[in-house]
Amino acid sequence: MGEITGLDRLLGEHPFFAGMPPDVAKLLAGCARNVVFEAGRYVFREGGAADQFYLLRHGTVTLEVRVPGREPLVVDTLQEGDVIGWSWLLPPYQWSMDARAQTLVRTLALDAVCLRGKLDAEPALGYELFRRFVPVMGRRLMAARLQLADLYARPSGGRG
């Protein structure tokens, strides 16, 4: 029980859980465990089964796209307080890029298989999760679009 109580506390401290109803939090805690990644280790790889998601407690995780013959391209970095991964919510439940620990990374991993099983039976759980994941997805999509806009590119044809 001590182990579970400790997880409860860690979950409660993570911004992702702010305002989570106690019963939902308890349910999630049942699917959570502590996972640590050493610097350089992959949290997950593109194409792998998205059967977990992670609450980042400490360290930096890079999201990377593999490019043949080149260094991987880093397109986003995630920090303490961020959530890693939402592919577990949508079929076919596969990661769409690599996530790698840039530093020592401490996470809480939530068992997505277990959660997916409970989502249909517990609409309140689904609502709380989607309510938290949709803004994260929205923010990342917005950020990706701004990156796509290449705002700082050197303009061509300047006159001055």
Binding site: E71, V74, V75, Q102, R139, A143, Y152
Partner: peptide, 18 residues
């Protein structure tokens, strides 16, 4: 933060608004 980086960049990647 930078919009894109290779893996040897130890800093953040993402938009400044974040």
């Amino acid at each position: 933060t930078v919009d894109r980086a290779s893996h040897d960049w130890a800093g953040k990647v993402g938009v400044v608004t974040r």
